[in-house]
Amino acid sequence: MRPLNARRPILRVDPAPTKWAYRMQRLWLTPVFRALLRVGLPAFVLVSVAGLFLADPARRDAIAGGIAEVREQFQNRPEFMVRLVSVVGASPELADAVRARLALTLPLSSFDIDLTAVRARIQDLDAVARADLIVRSGGVLEVAITERVPALLWRTETGIEMLDATGHRVASLAARTDRPDLPIIAGEGADSAAPEALALLAAAAPILPRLRGLVRVGDRRWDVVLDRNQRILLPDEKPIAAIERLIALHQAGDLLGRDILAVDLRTDHRPVLRLAPFALNQLRQSMGIDTSGSQL
């Protein structure tokens, strides 16, 4: 008699792995295969899904359009809008010129303003030495201007220009009398030698009341023109030393007060004076030379 509650015989499962299970486990333990499956396969799936999605040009355009729209919306938010331009540190005429030069159609998003280009455009104005652009809160574009200070007048064939200390043009001038305080220079290439001209003028301070201006000769050297059409011809090298020597001569013997047409200092060891014709005759007569009837 068998007991009724006898345990069912347990179905013994073969503990051995099947050939394929064994091979699969060995394959899975192969490092290359494992790396391929764990990194390579997900990467491949991701790339292929993204590639398939983007293969359609309409989807690509939609994505690009969406991005551009969001960008546009963000940039056009009121806190980024510029409504006002304030020009600081410029005379009213220059301020108007700067405003005209800015050529901004306000209101405009501050993202759309190319500050570097605008700054370069403003600095192209001759009267502007330096411009600083800041977008202030409240939608204000502040343009801080440093103006060029005129230091010289330059008389050219077409008119009179004002130059600053570096020789850069500031503005045109209608008449000399508008700025009688500024010294005048003339001649081709005088503007590029403006610093030297200012140094010469400083050195020639003792004879300044008599000075009419400086003339650049041959874009190489300076002539100092005094009243009574007297000229001082300066050398192209070390003109300041030459003019200081001349002033020393003038102060010692009142050289320029005499009847002289020109003082030629171009060779430094031998200054040459050119006398007026009357003075020459006087000199010859005093030396006992008869010059009557001679043109010389």
Binding site: P15, A16, K19, Y22, Q25, R26, L29
Partner: peptide
Amino acid sequence: RAVRTAVQAAQ
């Protein structure tokens, strides 16, 4: 089969 069982478990 027995060898496979042992090798697989050890691996």
